[in-house]
Amino acid sequence: MGLPAAAGVLVVVLAWLAGPGLFGIAGDGAGAPVQAEVTQPAACSAGNPVESVTFSLGGKPRQGTLNGCGHAKGERVEVGVPVDAPADGPITVSAADTSAGAQDARGPIALVLLVFACFSGGMYAFLVIRGSGKLALLH
């Protein structure tokens, strides 16, 4: 019984040390939110709609593409500009409210579910070992 419990504790500790990247929750590299203006809206009925936006980055006006739809021409939206944005040319931006990163409840919930899965696996191993030694499903 000690071996399954130790294996479960080891898995949980390794998952804790790996951090939020293990669960696919790592930040997306978006910088600070920037106010942008929609210059060419896209209809939501189109497949993979992309809108054109303009914003100021480093005191210079810049053009960008926003993967979204439903905004009106001239509407102000908050976008997240990537930290490694190119010095010239259009920049692909994302809506700022969808770029929260790992500062939400997904990490702790994923870790709790992992602990529950380890506990369940350990209990199953315990019941199999404690039983008659044979699996009842193999009869």
Results as ranks from 00 to 15, higher is better:
55 F>Q: 11
12 V>Q: 04
49 P>K: 07
61 P>L: 01
13 V>P: 03
65 T>E: 15
25 I>K: 11
38 V>S: 00
40 Q>Y: 01
52 S>G: 01
77 V>Q: 09
92 T>W: 13
47 G>N: 12
33 P>R: 01
89 G>Q: 06
81 V>T: 01
24 G>V: 11
15 A>M: 05
40 Q>R: 12
15 A>L: 14
15 A>N: 05
92 T>P: 00
49 P>A: 03
26 A>P: 06
83 V>I: 13
59 G>H: 03
71 H>R: 13
81 V>M: 11
63 Q>P: 08
77 V>N: 08
65 T>M: 15
32 A>F: 04
61 P>I: 02
54 T>N: 07
11 V>L: 15
71 H>W: 00
56 S>F: 01
92 T>E: 11
50 V>F: 00
44 C>V: 10
24 G>H: 12
12 V>S: 07
38 V>L: 01
23 F>K: 01
49 P>D: 04
78 E>Y: 02
65 T>A: 14
64 G>H: 09
21 G>F: 10
35 Q>T: 11
27 G>V: 02
69 C>N: 03
60 K>F: 06
59 G>W: 02
92 T>S: 13
45 S>W: 07
44 C>D: 03
66 L>F: 07
31 G>V: 02
46 A>W: 10
59 G>N: 04
49 P>E: 02
78 E>V: 10
45 S>A: 08
29 G>E: 00
46 A>M: 11
79 V>H: 00
25 I>W: 06
54 T>W: 00
23 F>W: 09
63 Q>Y: 14
76 R>Y: 02
23 F>C: 07
66 L>V: 09
48 N>K: 14
40 Q>E: 15
30 A>Q: 15
82 P>V: 02
52 S>E: 06
89 G>C: 08
35 Q>L: 12
86 P>T: 04
62 R>N: 08
60 K>Y: 09
